[in-house]
Design a protein around this nucleic acid. Structure first.
Length: 251
DNA sequence: AATACACCCAACCGCTGCTGG
DNA sequence: CCCAGCAGCGGTTGGGTGTAT
């Protein structure tokens, strides 16, 4: 029953404004680092971890608060398709947003949409009253949760809702984004290829790379309906980044 | 107005990886 | 190498708040 060490238990629970002020002042004076020391020297009776979290997620300068914009939401969805639950990585691409915030946002606003109508509605017969959250987003989220094999009636590596599926290749902005994120992550090339295609709603993983793949029999049903072959050149940078190992395409 | 239920999000927990002795 | 201490990460929890009945 009794505590042998009788160590003072660190304070827990919600932070009070005065505690925030103490921590903020301390960090601004002494800088970050060694959070165990911070908690002791600042006089806060909090654990080092708690101090670090409070600073990182709430007090740090340039923290953006308030609802996510449509652009941010889109980016989160795309990045989640690409990276999975790598919240810190995703947050790294959203200036002013923290991993915790992105994770919470995903779990509440985005992930939950895949389970239709959890919250009670005014009219249970009217599915639309739940929320005018766009069905497009819902579809994206649902798609992202499905394993790759959920599309069995066609060849694509990842299934995307047919009406949204694109063929052809990533545009320059898409390629730039993909490259940047790839550099930050340690995802294997093959996984990357598949997710990259899914991320931008391309029907085939190989859409984002080079021409030799098109010769593979598995992909013989591929049709360019949007872009001519000359666009291969646009893909060159991305292709180079991934290397040329055919293994990576699961062939 | 009271109650129950659902939602949101800050904070905590436990694990992993890194670093220095 | 091994170990301890720390930072960082993702998963989970629980209390406050909003909404429906």
């Amino acid at each position: 029953m009794e505590n042998k060490e009788m160590k003072p238990q660190p304070k827990r629970g919600l932070w009070k404004p005065e505690e925030d002020l103490i921590l903020k002042n301390y960090i601004e004076t002494h800088g970050e680092g060694n959070w165990a020391t911070v908690s002791k020297r600042s006089g806060l009776m909090r654990g080092g971890k708690s101090c670090r979290l409070r600073w990182k997620n709430y007090l740090r300068p340039n923290i953006k608060r308030g609802g996510m914009s449509k652009e941010e939401e889109d980016l989160i969805i795309r990045m989640h398709k690409l990276l999975g639950n790598r919240w810190s990585l995703i947050a790294g691409r959203l200036p002013g947003r923290t991993d915790n915030e992105v994770k919470n946002y995903w779990n509440t606003h985005l992930n939950k949409k895949s389970v239709l109508g959890k919250r009670k509605t005014i009219d249970s017969n009217n599915q639309h009253s739940d929320n005018e959250l766009d069905k497009e987003t819902l579809q994206q989220v649902q798609d992202s949760k499905k394993p790759s094999q959920f599309v069995h009636n066609s060849q694509p590596v990842f299934g995307i809702s047919p009406e949204k599926t694109k063929t052809g290749r990533l545009d320059l902005d898409e390629k730039k984004e993909m490259q940047e994120v790839k550099e930050e992550s340690s995802i294997t090339d093959s996984t990357w290829m598949e997710r990259a295609a899914q991320c931008f709603n391309y029907e085939y993983a190989y859409d984002i790379v080079e021409t030799p793949l098109m010769m593979h029999p598995n992909y013989s049903n591929f049709v360019f309906d949007e872009e001519p072959f000359t666009s291969y050149l646009d893909s060159f940078v991305l292709f180079e980044a991934f290397g040329t190992d055919s293994d990576q395409f699961g062939i």
